[in-house]
């Protein structure tokens, strides 16, 4: 379990990357959602003991952040950007990481590396130098190194970036299997990445925690805020682009699904909208961001 209390990270200029975060993360896959710049990476770097928080505390499986050496023994980490020494082969690299993670027995290390290479579909390329790998292959190698040693806590920052759809699915399933009895903290700004696998969800925006709960909690934010409109081109242009979830051209006009507190006035006047729609997770997420921003804006005002 990871317990985060009043955690803040303030940069030299005075800006907050994280502000007063309180969050409890249980076993299983946890999706950390938020737009770019929300503070997801900062939170993950703090939990991976790469940087210190400005204030607040966190316990990772009962270990405070100050005991960084002990935390590093139990985590696997894949950063958002991942590069490896190009001169090494994939197998050599993983062997090095294995030793660093304390897998001293060579045979056990080899067995685990072979298994992971199989799982990330790099078995055939294991003896090739990393400089010959594609971007996706490097990403998969990064996933393998994070999984090596079966860490109790896996922290993966936007792990699916650069992977093709087939690899994304493969990877999600891999993480889901791995998360049994462990914590897998996965950050992304793509809702689909967590939709199928993450029961727990935390949403960050502008350094603040907007939501911590389960998938239905997030979807519930869209309740009564999802509208389906049929508009012509001119009315479509007048819509707030940030609220449009999807658009479909039909014979009658453009069928749009939007997230908003109220249907647009013109559509409401024409009576060409449908209310009471069941919100998806993404729509709940958008509704939450809109709510959060309004609340933030109100406070600023």
């Amino acid at each position: 379990m990871i317990q985060i209390e009043h955690l803040s990270k303030k940069y030299r200029g005075g800006a907050y990357a994280l502000q007063d975060i309180n969050l409890t993360i249980q076993e299983g896959m946890v999706g950390l959602l938020g737009p770019n710049g929300a503070g997801k990476t900062t939170l993950m770097r703090i939990l991976a003991t790469l940087i210190s928080p400005s204030s607040g505390s966190a316990l990772v499986n009962g270990k405070p952040l100050g005991h960084a050496e002990q935390i590093r023994q139990m985590i696997g980490y894949l950063p958002q950007q991942f590069q490896v020494y190009p001169q090494l082969t994939g197998a050599d690299y993983l062997d090095y990481v294995g030793v660093m993670k304390g897998i001293g027995d060579r045979r056990r290390r080899k067995e685990e590396i072979d298994r992971l290479l199989e799982e990330v579909n790099l078995k055939d390329k294991a003896r090739k130098k990393v400089r010959t790998y594609s971007g996706g292959m490097k990403r998969r190698l990064g996933i393998a190194q994070a999984l090596l040693g079966s860490p109790q806590v896996l922290i993966v920052d936007e792990p699916t970036a650069g992977l093709d759809p087939e690899e994304r699915v493969r990877f999600r399933n891999l993480l889901t299997r791995f998360s049994l009895g462990r914590i897998v903290l996965l950050s992304t700004h793509i809702v689909a990445d967590i939709e199928s696998n993450c029961r727990q969800i935390a949403v960050l925006d502008k350094g603040k925690l907007l939501l911590a709960g389960e998938q239905p909690d997030l979807a519930a934010y869209g309740q009564g805020k999802v509208w389906e409109l049929l508009v012509d081109d001119r009315a479509y242009a007048a819509l707030d682009p940030m609220s449009i979830v999807s658009t479909q051209r039909t014979e009658e006009g453009l069928l749009c699904r939007i997230v908003a507190d109220e249907p647009p006035a013109a559509a409401a006047a024409a009576g060409r909208f449908k209310a009471g729609l069941s919100p998806s997770l993404e729509e709940g997420y958008l509704a939450l961001l809109q709510t959060g921003r309004k609340a933030g804006g109100d406070r600023h005002d």
Partner: peptide, 12 residues
Amino acid sequence: RPSFEWSRSLPL
């Protein structure tokens, strides 16, 4: 190098 941040998460 930020892209080698993984190395700093290792218990070394």
